[in-house]
Amino acid sequence: MANITLGGSPIETIGQLPSTGNKAPDFKLTATDLSTKSLSDYEGHRLVLNIFPSVDTGTCAQSVRTFNEKASALDNTKVLCISKDLPFALARFCGAEGLDNVESLSDFKTGNFGEDYGVTFKTGPLESLLSRCIVVVDTDGTVLYTEQVSETKDEPNYESALASLS
């Protein structure tokens, strides 16, 4: 379990992020067109999993915007923005913002992604949503980098995440 904060108040997740060097857990998430996406759909691509509580908060929205901007310069890399937001809300946000270099996916159906990646909030006012994390995965499914953001209101370390792809 990760011990993090929200506005300085302690909260916990249900587990720990996958360890670097290990295979990323498979997942089934819902895309904005309501199709189901799994890790194997991205085989052969490097992945940046931008995981967050809700695109309807300022910090989460900014992380999607920032990765959208930086993703256009990355070779053979897809940025997956993952939350429990409904696919409709994710599509509305990205459409309104003109964000087309990221792919939005939702864990709203089962919550299994949050459990398998250890990122579901266990306590606090955001209980059952996903914590702010980054997981970078290589083309063979190996975890290259992880970051559990210690203060939920803070942005992730974009530069370190992207540097892990070098």
Rank of each mutant, 00 (worst) to 15 (best):
E151T: 12
K70D: 08
E43H: 15
T20G: 03
K153V: 13
P87T: 07
I4S: 00
T36Q: 15
A73H: 12
P10R: 11
F121R: 00
F121M: 01
L49R: 09
P53M: 03
N3V: 15
K23V: 05
H45R: 15
E12H: 13
A61I: 12
N22S: 14
T110A: 09
A161W: 03
D56P: 03
D140R: 11
Y117V: 00
Y158R: 03
S164T: 07
R132G: 01
E43G: 14
L99N: 04
L144H: 10
L49E: 01
L165F: 05
L129S: 02
D138R: 02
G58D: 13
A71Y: 10
V136L: 05
R132P: 01
T13I: 01
T66N: 15
S38N: 12
L90T: 07
L86F: 15
F108D: 01
D41N: 13
P25L: 05
C94P: 07
I11T: 06
L130C: 01
V64L: 10
V48T: 12
A31S: 13
A91P: 06
D100Q: 14
C133R: 00
T77N: 06
S40L: 11
D154C: 13
L162S: 02
L29T: 01
P125M: 15
E151W: 07
L144G: 01
T120C: 03
S131T: 02
F121E: 00
G58A: 12
D100V: 14
D33L: 06
T146C: 12
D100I: 10
S9W: 10
Y42R: 11
D85K: 03
T152W: 08
G44F: 11
A73L: 11
Y145C: 08
I4R: 01
F88D: 04
S40R: 14
F121A: 00
R132E: 03
V149S: 02
A89M: 07
L126Y: 09
N112K: 15
N3E: 15
F52I: 01
T110C: 10
K28G: 06
L162G: 01
S63C: 14
Q16C: 10
I134R: 04
P25N: 05
L90H: 01
L6C: 07
Q148D: 09
L39W: 04
S166W: 02
V143E: 03
R92T: 09
A96N: 14
D107A: 08
P125C: 10
D41K: 06
L47S: 04
G44D: 09
D154L: 11
T77F: 02
K37A: 06
Q16M: 14
